[in-house]
Amino acid sequence: MLNYRHLYYFRTVAKAGALNRAAEKLHLTPQTLSGQLSAFEERLGVALFRRNGRRLELTDAGRTALVYADDIFQIGAELEDALQNRLAPRAHPFRVGIAEVVPKAIAYQLLAPALALAEPVKLVCLEDRLEQLAAELSIHRLDMVLADRPLPATMDIKGYSHPLGECGIAFLAARTIGSALETDFPASLQGAPLLIPGEDSALRVPLLRWLERKGIQPVIVGEFDDSALMSAFGQAGAGVFPVPLTTARDVMRQYEVIELGRTLEIRERFFAISVERRLRHPAVLAVSEAARQRFQLPDGG
């Protein structure tokens, strides 16, 4: 039978990445902890770690073991919580991966309906690159991934991309530079400082192609994977920056910036990626249904 104390020791070392650090946290000597790990590996018949200098790195078997260890201790915590709060309705975890390039305001707009379900939901969000999130989804550690593109066909992962909606783009800027650029948009972007999404964003290429078609050559002064960071730089006057039309009003209010113009020729798209061909998870269905209502394209040029 599996020794759960050994499993806990293994998980602590895997998270700490070093034996001494884990031993200190567990209030054990490094020698004692090393012996416990060796006994665990001997019981399983596989090596869970390999040494790289002073660090301990997980082997393939170790990575697999860590996935199960996380699930086991998460379920244990839920059991303890359920027993201690028997009279309270149990909130079911809704585990969502959010691609780094998805604007935080969009993520909130899309996920908020899940929190309004009659059956309580505990939202658990993980932000990372789409490739990493898709890998987590494939082993059922996530219920859904929010992304700005479908699951790439080149990824050897079985998943289905469900369109949530799309919207045009607004160009915002701090008043210090925006006041001189408000007239004659988009021609006013010629030579203007511009902040653009990073290479992982699906918006980047359409944005650059749109500028090329218009014959506009701004000065690109920054690239950002994080839209909130790009907005902060825009607020400080570093340059003009694009945002989805559906969040433009909120961004303008939060960052005290102004709108120079908008276009529907560039579309920001959003997808729910799941392992289900047909959506069944109640929270995912709530997200999908609400998104269809929210992403109505406003008038624009």
Rank of each mutant, 00 (worst) to 15 (best):
S231E: 10
A39S: 13
R204F: 03
A88K: 15
Q293W: 00
Y255C: 07
S34G: 12
V101N: 06
G239W: 01
A39C: 00
E182H: 09
E212W: 05
I75C: 11
A174V: 11
V287P: 01
L146T: 02
A16Y: 03
L19E: 05
A173G: 13
L19P: 06
V243Q: 12
L111W: 12
S161T: 03
D156M: 07
T247K: 09
F185P: 09
H27V: 11
L2Y: 08
V96P: 07
T183M: 14
L189R: 07
G45S: 01
D71G: 07
L264T: 10
L264K: 10
I106G: 05
A107T: 06
A91T: 09
D60W: 08
R141H: 10
P30K: 03
G300T: 14
A39H: 08
I220V: 14
E289M: 00
D70L: 01
S179R: 13
T246M: 08
S201T: 06
A88T: 15
L172G: 13
L211S: 02
G222F: 05
P152F: 05
V275W: 02
L137K: 01
A47R: 13
R5A: 14
L146F: 03
L211E: 08
R51V: 02
Q254G: 07
S138R: 00
E199D: 13
I258R: 08
V145M: 00
A18T: 11
G300W: 00
P193R: 03
Q132K: 13
Y108V: 12
A286Q: 04
L56A: 02
A238F: 09
Y8R: 14
L66I: 07
